[in-house]
Simulated assay, not measured.
Amino acid sequence: MVTSMTGYGREEAANEQVKIFAEIKTVNHRFCEYTIRMPRQLLVLEEKVKKKANQYIRRGRVEIFITVEGDSLVSKNVKIDWDLADQYVSLMDKVKGKYNLESSVTLQDMLQLESIFVTEEVPIVPTDLEALLMEAVSGALENLKKMRTQEGQELAQDLQHQLKKFGEIVVGVKNYAPSVVEKYKARLAIKLAELTEGLIEDSRIVTEAAIFADKCDINEELTRLESHVQQFSETLTHGEPIGRKLDFLVQEMNREVNTIGSKANDSTITKEVVEMKSLLEKLKEQVQNIE
């Protein structure tokens, strides 16, 4: 089954204390690369999230976003910086003494000095938060899988369509190729007859035709192309990730087509080579989306 590397999945899980949202987005990438963003109190579970994702994803750039909602996730404590408070009081007393001020330092004065009060946030991790997180992540991965599978099926249909057109051209060129030598032989006979007034021997024409046939022989390339087309079609039915293999086959097919284009001394074959290269570009573009 063909799976696309592009997809999106979202799921949420909740209990009486918290609600967890998991969003997962994947795009094309040569390897498998992760970016995971989650609250601090969940960072210890990052590897478990990644391990779970690896059961669904083999290739692609993966972005996982975890958000948590709940009133009891953070405990706030207020502390006083006593050293700083002592300095403030000491300075105030010095100012009072220097300028003979009557008023004394009051609690209201101290409350105005916000810098001496420090607020600390202490994360609170509910006991069942891990189970809740994995429930949300698993659901998001299932939704991601559905989307990637559906898009993969559409990609497979398009690839089969393009591949069929490519294979038909290969068969057509293979059937047409033998006539290229015969046409060359006929043109050569006419040309030599004109130049030598009919005094050229048939054996010379046959020899020249044989040399030409050897130079423009594309049977090996066409045979390999037929094999690649068959392998490509069969690979589309495999269950494991196939993107890299398909990409390799497209490269090999392109190499064979380039060789045919350089060998074939015929306008009809050259035209078909252009069409085959156009189809290979479409195949290559689509293969880049496959896991």
Rank of each mutant, 00 (worst) to 15 (best):
L155W: 00
E114M: 05
K165Y: 05
A136E: 04
L195E: 07
E154P: 01
V171F: 02
M147W: 09
Y184N: 06
A131R: 05
K185T: 14
D128S: 11
G167Q: 12
K185V: 09
G139I: 10
G172V: 08
L113S: 02
I116Y: 02
Y176M: 08
G152C: 08
Q157V: 11
A177H: 08
P126H: 10
Q153C: 07
T149A: 13
E120C: 04
V118W: 01
V137D: 03
L129V: 15
A177M: 11
T196I: 09
Q157A: 12
F117D: 01
V173Y: 03
G152Y: 15
D128N: 11
F117W: 06
L199N: 11
E168A: 11
L195Q: 12
A156I: 05
G198K: 08
L192C: 01
K165V: 00
G152F: 07
K145E: 11
E194R: 15
E120R: 08
S138K: 13
Y184R: 08
E154F: 12
Q160E: 15
I190L: 13
M147Y: 10
V180E: 09
T127E: 13
T119D: 02
K164Y: 08
S179I: 08
I169T: 06
L192H: 03
F117G: 01
M134S: 03
E121F: 04
E114A: 11
L133D: 01
L199C: 01
K145D: 11
Q150Y: 12
L188P: 02
D158W: 07
Q153F: 10
T127V: 08
K183T: 12
K191N: 08
P178Q: 08
V173Q: 00
A156F: 08
K165W: 00
V118I: 14
V181K: 15
D158M: 15
T127A: 14
D158P: 03
L195A: 10
R148A: 07
P178L: 00
L155A: 05
T196Q: 03
R148S: 09
L132M: 10
Q157I: 05
D158S: 14
E168D: 13
I116M: 09
V180G: 07
D158L: 15
L132A: 02
M147N: 10
